[in-house]
Design a protein around this nucleic acid. Sequence first.
DNA 1: ACCCTCACCTGCACGC
DNA 2: TGCGTGCAGGTGAGGG
Length: 276
Amino acid sequence: MPELPEVELVARALERALHGQRIASAKLIRAGLAPDNTPQEFARALRGARVCEVGRRGKFIVVRFDGGQVLLTHLRMTGQFKMLRPSQPLPKHTHALFNLDDKSRLAFTDQRHFGLMKIARASELEQTKELRGLAPEPFSDDFTPDYLARVLARTRRMLKSVLLDQTKVTGLGNIYAAEALFLARVNPFVTAAALSRRRVPRLHRAILDVLCEAVSYVRARDVDLENLESNYFSGSGSGWRVYDREGEPCGGCGALVRRVAHAGRSTYFCPRCQRR
DNA sequence: ACCCTCACCTGCACGC
DNA sequence: TGCGTGCAGGTGAGGG
């Protein structure tokens, strides 16, 4: 279910739990989780490897080991890392298990089987099909209003779907895209190239603001790998501004929030604040 | 080349 | 209580 802020949260929690730890053994329980590696490769690459850093690129979690291997993980909708208590049985839908040197165990569970893992060489990381082509990190110097203007000018797709395209803007998903568009008071169904020059910086600012708000909320809390869900941001407790609020009054103008579905995804927006 | 729709899974909330 | 339907925060393959 995670977008950039939630992935960031998980990466931080893993960094805390794993930094400097050695993997005694790793087991790929459902082979489809890492389709580019055999379970044997998976186990061999990680056995005895020491974690030197856990980070994030887009919505990917990047675990670096001292031997030069990297474990890439995408949580997709329902992937979760869980630290297990001693003698705790494997949770339902456990698809990979990492036994650490200190006897603690880390499970990867994934109810919907959408998540992905991959073992890669650190030197080839940027060229993997997973990371190649990802847009610049929103918080990097490369993600500027000019960059966004150039990306938007080049396409006739609707704005919302461009914001969800990880090769154009990385880190946004269905919730934060809707929230950013609302903050910027921009209509989700407008053609990207048709967005006025004046509004581009506003949208850029809004993207950073919604991500920033969520990440700082996450940062301020004690990250807990055993109860990650409780750390997930959902609009600072007050709830999202428009996401999942169909029929409720918009906090800005009181008009009723609308939900429109295409291709099986919902888009929430305020018909008055976000007029075409 | 671009863009949209759907499939990939399981589970949960809802209405009958 | 039980079943059937629709929905879920992601993305790639496939077709138009």
